[in-house]
């Protein structure tokens, strides 16, 4: 951490210094382990006439991917660190839990979370935990990064951190401005227009339209893929007429 990188919060500045120090220490430890492995390998090779490969430092010190809790036959699994499905399956097997873990393409902020499409299991709304009866082998889904153009199986609000429209200012624009801005950002835009009765939060029925009325308000947007954004609009009346439907975001 050098002076030009000063953070405005003193404790965060100190934490940064501690992290870099810990990173240096971790690297020295990895190198020491590798050196030990090479030395051990050479010795063993001399003794047995074979050559051992040095330990990979890729996962040295990596935390477990899951935390597992049992309550009788009930098993709750939390994803504690980002990991491939194979790693999760291996860790569950080591804990004596049988589950089929698969991945689904999801929007960025849902990557690494349990997906609600699980079969034989219940997923918490935030995607952090999945629970099931250990007597059945459930099919669990973990969100993975989608490939170019791949349709998301699930997507968060496009305004969430890490999502396509986070801190882009789109929420305050009229439809024509939204279309232009989303186009500038490199996305194709599709409209959904929702009729809202005064006094309720929306009918929930939103039909696809080519050109929405200009006096519409953006009430929601989500990504269909990394190329297509679906924007939900409502008439500029009812519960959204006086305050922004999507609040301004606290951006730098």
């Amino acid at each position: 951490m050098t002076s030009h990188q000063e953070l405005s919060v003193p404790v965060l500045q100190r934490l940064g210094e501690e992290l870099v120090f810990a990173a240096r220490r971790s690297k020295r430890r990895s190198l020491a382990l590798r050196s030990l492995a090479v030395t051990t390998g050479c010795t063993a090779a001399l003794l047995a006439g074979v050559i051992l490969l040095p330990v990979s430092d890729g996962d040295v010190g990596a935390p477990p991917a899951v935390a597992l809790e049992r309550n009788g036959a009930r098993v709750t699994i939390e994803l504690t660190a980002p990991a491939e499905t194979e790693v999760i399956i291996q860790e569950l097997e080591r804990a004596g839990v049988k589950a089929d873990v698969r991945s689904l393409p999801v929007s960025p902020s849902l990557v690494g979370l349990w997906n609600a499409q699980a079969q034989g299991a219940e997923v918490t709304p935030d995607g952090s935990e999945v629970a099931f009866d250990a007597t059945v082998a459930p099919v669990l889904y973990v969100g993975r990064a989608a490939g170019p153009g791949e349709v998301y199986a699930a997507s968060a609000s496009a305004f969430d951190p890490g999502e396509a429209l986070h801190c882009t200012g789109v929420e305050s624009l009229p439809p024509s401005g939204i279309k232009a801005r989303v186009g500038e950002l490199g996305y194709e835009l599709q409209w959904r227009y929702e009729e809202i009765s005064p006094g309720n939060g929306g009918s929930g029925l939103a039909g696809q339209v080519e050109e929405p009325p200009e006096r519409s308000i953006l009430i929601h947007a989500t990504a269909w893929s990394d190329r297509v954004i679906i924007a939900f609009l409502a008439p500029a009346t009812g519960p959204f007429r006086q305050t922004p439907a999507i609040p301004p975001q606290d951006c730098e």
């Binding site: 992290l19 990596a62 990557v111």
Partner: peptide, 29 residues
């Protein structure tokens, strides 16, 4: 969160998804 991100960095795959989403996902957990 940052300590766990450091320990898990080898598991991060650059697939073009913003790395911030990965970091904020850890924070949300």
């Amino acid at each position: 969160t940052f300590a766990q991100a450091f320990l898990s960095r080898s598991r991060y795959r650059d697939t073009g998804v913003p790395c911030a989403a990965w970091l904020f996902g850890i924070a949300r957990h």
